[in-house]
Nucleic acid binder design. Structure first.
Length: 294
DNA sequence: CGCGTAACGGTTGAG
DNA sequence: CCCTCAACCGTTACG
C-alpha cells in the first residue's frame, strides 16, 4: 500500500519512509548540483536530508542515473534473462509444455545446471508473469528490461534501471550514456511539473494566501526555472533509460483525470513543497493541502 | 559548517 | 497464498 501520508523530516520536507524520493526531486537535486549549488544548499532548498542528497549525487556520479535502485525481491538467481528467454522459446515451440518439462529441458540443454535450475513453481511463475501472452510477445532483450514489456501490471521496480545501474559499475559505464534517443515526448499535461502539481499547487497557494511572499515564489521559480517536462525529456541528466523509467512515476503522482487521489495525496502531502518556505511557514500548507500529514 | 556514512526503521518483491 | 529475506529506501546522528 502506498501510504497516503508521509513523514516530515527535520527540514520540513515530507518523505515516505522506505520509499524513494520522487524522480522529479532526484532530478532536481542533480540539476542543482550541476549548477554549482552546494549539496548543503540543495538539501535545504528541497528539504531533503543532506545524507540523501549526498547519496543521490554519489550514485549519479557513479552510475549516471538519477534513479533509485531496484527495491525488493531477490536478485534473479535462477530466472535470469537467458533462462527466461529459453523458457519462452520452449513454450513457443510447444505451447502445451509443462513446467516440469521445461525444467528438464533447461537442464538437458545446459542452460542451467542443477544449482541454478529454477523450481517448477518458478517456471510457472515465469510463464505466468513474464511470458503470459505469447502471441503478442515482443522481443525480450536479455538483461535490458528498459523497454517495457507489455505486461499487465508493471512492478514498481520497473521504474528502475535494474541491471545496468545495479552493478558496482565498471568504470567504463559511468557517466552519461551516449544514446540520448528520445523515444517519446511528454504530453504537456503529463509533465512532471503538472504531474507533481507543483505549478497548480503554487498557484493554489498564491490564491489561497494573498500574503504569500513573492520573493519566495521567485526563489522557487528560480529553482524551478526549467519545468520538469523539459528537464525530463531534454535534460542531459536523464539518460534514455531513465526517461523510459521516469514516466511510470505517474504511479506516484499521476491519475488519469483531475488528479484526485494518489496524486494529491502524495503531492499535497508535500513531497514537493510548493515553494521553499522556512519550516515555520509550513502550516499554511493546510489551506492547499487537505491531506496534510499529522 | 559541510560532508560522508553507519545505523535505523521502513517497503518491496522474487523465490 | 503466504512467508522469508535480501535488496533498496530516506532520515538521523555521528565523526
Amino acid at each position: 500500500m502506498e501510504p497516503a501520508f508521509g513523514e516530515v523530516n527535520q527540514l520540513g520536507g515530507v518523505f515516505v519512509n522506505g520509499r524513494p524520493l520522487p524522480n522529479a526531486i532526484r532530478l532536481r537535486i542533480v540539476e542543482l548540483a550541476q549548477l554549482g549549488i552546494r549539496p548543503c544548499d540543495i538539501s535545504r532548498q528541497l528539504r531533503v536530508s543532506h545524507g540523501c542528497v549526498s547519496k543521490i549525487l554519489a550514485r549519479y556520479n557513479e552510475t549516471g542515473s538519477i534513479l533509485p535502485g531496484a527495491i525488493g525481491g531477490s536478485k534473479p538467481r535462477v530466472t535470469t534473462p537467458t533462462v527466461v528467454k529459453h523458457i519462452r522459446t520452449y513454450k513457443q515451440r510447444d505451447p502445451g509444455i509443462f513446467a516440469w518439462e521445461i525444467r528438464d529441458r533447461l537442464l538437458a540443454d545446459g542452460v542451467c545446471d542443477k544449482f541454478n535450475l529454477p523450481s517448477v513453481s518458478s517456471i510457472s511463475r515465469i510463464l505466468r508473469n513474464k511470458i503470459g501472452n505469447l502471441s503478442q510477445q515482443s522481443h525480450y532483450e536479455s538483461g535490458k528490461p528498459s523497454h517495457a514489456p507489455p505486461q499487465p501490471a508493471l512492478p514498481y521496480n520497473h521504474l528502475y534501471s535494474y541491471p545496468s545501474s545495479k552493478v558496482p559499475t565498471p568504470p567504463g559505464m559511468a557517466g552519461l550514456p551516449g544514446h540520448m534517443a528520445m523515444h517519446r515526448i511528454w504530453p504537456s499535461s503529463h509533465s512532471v511539473t503538472d504531474i507533481l502539481g507543483i505549478r497548480s499547487i503554487t498557484e493554489q497557494q498564491i490564491s489561497d494566501s494573498p500574503s504569500f511572499p513573492s520573493a519566495k515564489l521567485e526563489e522557487w521559480s528560480a529553482i524551478n526555472r526549467t519545468n520538469f517536462s523539459a528537464a525530463a525529456a531534454c535534460s542531459p541528466l536523464v539518460n534514455a533509460m531513465d526517461k523510459a523509467h521516469l514516466e511510470p512515476e505517474a504511479k506516484y503522482a499521476q491519475t488519469p483525470s483531475g488528479l484526485p487521489s494518489t496524486v494529491n495525496s502524495y503531492v499535497t502531502a508535500g513531497s514537493i513543497p510548493p515553494y521553499p518556505l522556512p519550516p515555520q511557514c509550513l502550516p499554511t500548507w493546510g489551506t492547499a493541502a487537505p491531506a496534510r500529514p499529522m
